[in-house]
Write a protein that binds this DNA or RNA. Sequence first.
DNA 1: CGACAGATTGATCCGTCTCAAGCGTGGTGG
DNA 2: CCACCACGCTTGAGACGGATCAATCTGTCG
Lengths: 220, 220
Amino acid sequence: MLAATTVFDRASHWPARFSKGVTIYDEGEPSATMYRLDRGCVRLQVNGHGGDRQIISFLFPGDLFGFCLDERHASAEAVTEAEVTCYSIASVLDLNGRSAEVLVELVNRANGAFGELAHHVEKITHLPAAERLIWFFNWLTHHDPTAAATGVIRLPMNHRDIADYLSLKPETLSRAFRLLETRGYIQRSGRRGLSLTRHALALRVRSPEEFTALEARPAA
Amino acid sequence: MLAATTVFDRASHWPARFSKGVTIYDEGEPSATMYRLDRGCVRLQVNGHGGDRQIISFLFPGDLFGFCLDERHASAEAVTEAEVTCYSIASVLDLNGRSAEVLVELVNRANGAFGELAHHVEKITHLPAAERLIWFFNWLTHHDPTAAATGVIRLPMNHRDIADYLSLKPETLSRAFRLLETRGYIQRSGRRGLSLTRHALALRVRSPEEFTALEARPAA
DNA sequence: CGACAGATTGATCCGTCTCAAGCGTGGTGG
DNA sequence: CCACCACGCTTGAGACGGATCAATCTGTCG
């Protein structure tokens, strides 16, 4: 998967680093640079009127972001210290004249992001709090083979970020955490550490749909 | 704006027509064709577990859709009788080798859709029912210069579609309609016709943010 | 080790969903 | 062209889930 992104390495690029909490770009800014995340975690978000914030997606190493040709449609902020590779958009466009892979890669990435967001919307609007959280854990493990195998997750973001991603208030999220813990789906260690129990892992091999529908609703 | 889409007319293309309610493609299907909508209205949607449906976007003439290179990430259905131009994806990719505009056009469309969806999520998760509806009217007028000028709208879709787009139940949507009517923001004629009143039009010149925040909340 | 931001817990409120009847419009057939 | 029928929209009453407000607790970092 890293190989796929090296398509762009023939365009002009350079490394950069953003520290925790820093804004990488803001919605509405003109865009001249796109990024590939190499280490850390980044969030894409839309900031609403009254300080309300909707996190659109969390990005992990290997993910591409900011490939807008005109201006930024959302903001990007570093969740943790983040190392990225920056690509000049002009030179990526130029590269397209020489290599057809560029279009394929960009359009696939864009469509993938769109599809993922579409499903995210469906989930956060139709699932109750605890099931949204399970959905989130499932989604996290898709981006981390280690977590998928062992069930151990080290959350890079705080609860407020998760709440804004799942469209819940921190208090409600906290109650959802406790509910899943009580029911034996997760075990927590500290604020950022958690492991999916055998119980949850066994269920997770099936489709997320079945998992959430059949197992999270009824009381243990 | 129609001129921009004729970029693709150098690729192989043909016309097609779908009647009301017909599925154009389903999520998960392999994709070999992309479309430009010429007349009518199409909806993109994700179908959840228990018959729950989230409408991601309504498409209008001039809009491009289905430009996935591998498989469909969402379903597309005709809201009304719809006339489209179909483009072979293979030949669009081929065209990219000869014309750099192809990449620019596709990536811009994809990013535009992503940005719009991101904002849609923010709205439907943070706004109360009546304000979501106002947001929807505003969004509709962006796609129809005539409506923007006169304030008269002929809805192509039924209330159930609007409800699934705004993530509301039909009953709640109905109450939101009545509320806006009572407060003098809209007048309705029949099930599909409505006009934004002077009151609403005057407010609409400002940003949707101000409009929804300042004017829809307090009782008249 | 100490302090502070972030997380938890409890009590209460409010908006939307749900279930159940009545419409009314728009489309159909006579 | 009009009358009728059916589907979709409307309206009401009640329940429920998440939001809110406020106090306390606890990891994490200096």
